[in-house]
Design a protein around this nucleic acid. Structure first.
Lengths: 339, 339
DNA sequence: TTGTAGGCGTTATCAA
DNA sequence: TTGATAACGCCTACAA
């Protein structure tokens, strides 16, 4: 068990070569003779040499680490996203630094600064606070960054998100085909650009299909079980409740179904519900949720790929990747019954 | 927008003080006059000075980063755990480096080495491969490490885990009280020490309560929805199926219930089922799972606290923290019906 | 209390 | 092709 640290210096001494030669050999540079290189590698191996990433970072200003900022990994769709990011950056030899913000601005600013202090090569973030001056300043600096799910027209950055319009529109057409004309929408927080886009798509769809007034049938919730349950109160309390509700994510859809049930409304007999995400449990019989599938892990992978590309070619024009969605029809939607 | 890097040197020049004074002031050392310090801080602020963590790490051999090794963050109980770790280490000014291994030995070894190359101050790991020589060598080295959920008697390291015996025993007594005498056990993979402990507790409980043969009523699964569904085939295919089954986690319990349902067996009317974890969805009406609550986020927090302590006092004797469990009775358990 | 000098382990530049 | 030497930015004796 080697106690003290073996440095490149030790390898140089042991192999009888110069420091710089060893460094070049280990880095796989073309200018060292193959035999020299293999000798160096052998010695390094024998000595149990391990490169110090801190030293490398200091010298080369490249940390081979990328920072991921999200609200909360404990949220299933966030964790799938993180996983997707890790898959890709790892393959590129990068380590992932994780920061949870709980949506709090101060924590996000602090986390971003810490990440910058660590010389991360890039940042991937799902951020609510794109309008904040401090965040804009960081993002306006020269650290490569890609925005996920939430973007901002003033920020000329790479972006990856789900196809918000398409999914909503597809779902809307589907339930329209089922005979629904009075359709509710449980939207996400207004600060989320994805939520805004979906709301926009919902309104467009309502117009296009000639459905009833979208405005009064919209309820703003957060992306949580509780929010869904609250929304159930709102919708069921209406003079004429909608016959179908589109929710902004699966958790709130499930909460909504639960809340509706507590108020004596059966899904899908009385009201149809559509979720968004397609979390693992959506497919079990007890839940059996009709939902708009959005592969968060893919989004993470796309975001990571975009970031790596940007790190390589910083001057490339900002890209915008839209990950497609797909309607998965299960048991929470049914033809409307005329009462 | 400051382009080039501001170093401590710039702050020194600008404030007319010496490098070391600035360093000390910024580090909050007692030996600089308060007024000097505030002046330094002001100048640093004005210049937009940001400390280089890489440089600090190189110099001080302390990275203020800790590595977390898990199989897959996308797994809900893993992500809750990671969140718990982050909460605590973050408060201590540390950044979290995340590595997913998917349970693969090679990836785990590679990830651990990378983390070590980054001079992490410590490691938290949920590892299946504690018996592997390379892993033992790393763990036997001098990087502070805490083991989670899986431990190994030969490794003298800090450990945090759920109270495996207690939870199982409590559940067993509860269903025994409901009249169940023939109880199945859906265990986790044999490589997991937690799974082994739970199996052990199950057998002890079966003995203690004078229940039917534990051996033939045990099925080894993985911790997944699919594994639960497979187990349903095993249990329902028995000549005399159990009247109650304890599962090793909620996901497999839910899969089990689903699989049982597909085979015409109703839970809890025909068979009772108990899970373990208490994931967020366990409480919704559609699932309503009786389960042994194990707070993964707490486990993460405890692990992080232990690690921080160990980093401070490396020579302290290895600690063993057992996080208590609690039986949450819901709708998947019912009194046995004599047929 | 403040200033000076050296080194942490690499990589990069330039000679040889 | 290989070798010497200077950074990278910070911390910490030690000297003043």
């Amino acid at each position: 068990m080697g106690r003290k640290k073996i440095t490149i210096k030790d390898v140089a001494r042991e192999s009888g070569l110069a420091l710089s030669t060893v460094s070049n050999a280990l880095a796989g540079k073309a200018l060292v003779r193959p035999e020299t290189r293999s000798h160096v590698v052998a010695v390094a191996q024998k000595l149990g040499y391990r490169a110090s990433i801190a030293a490398r970072t200091l010298r080369s200003q490249r940390s081979y680490a990328i920072g991921v900022l999200i609200e909360d990994v404990a949220n299933p769709s966030a964790s799938a996203f993180v996983r997707g990011v890790e898959d890709v950056v790892n393959r590129a030899g990068c380590t992932l630094l994780l920061a949870n913000t709980d949506g709090d601005l101060e924590r996000q600013v602090a986390a971003m600064n810490t990440l910058l202090d660590r010389d991360v090569d890039g940042l991937v973030l799902i951020s609510q606070h794109l309008a904040d001056a401090r965040i804009r300043e960081i993002l306006g600096g020269d650290v490569p960054a890609v925005l996920v799910q939430r973007c901002d027209p003033d920020l000329d950055l790479d972006y990856v998100g789900g196809d918000n319009s398409d999914g909503i529109l597809e779902a809307l057409r589907y339930v329209h085909g089922l005979g629904h004309r009075r359709i509710g929408f449980l939207t996400g927080p207004r600060v989320s650009s994805s939520a805004r886009e979906r709301l926009e798509a919902f309104r467009r769809g309502v117009d296009e299909l000639g459905l009833e007034d979208a405005e009064s049938l919209t309820y703003e919730g957060r992306y949580s079980l509780e929010a869904g349950m609250e929304a159930a109160g709102f919708f069921s309390g209406m003079r004429r409740p909608p016959t179908c509700i589109l929710a902004s994510n699966d958790m709130s859809a499930i909460g909504l179904i639960q809340g509706l049930g507590e108020r004596g409304l059966d899904v899908p007999k009385d009201i149809s519900v559509v979720g968004l995400d397609d979390i693992e449990l959506a497919r079990i019989k007890a839940i059996d949720l009709t939902t708009i599938r959005l592969e968060k892990r893919n989004i993470g992978a796309e975001a990571a790929a975009l970031l790596l590309r940007r790190i390589d070619t910083p001057e490339a024009p900002a890209a915008r990747v839209i990950v497609p969605t797909k309607l998965i029809v299960r048991g929470t939607t049914a033809p409307v019954v005329s009462s």
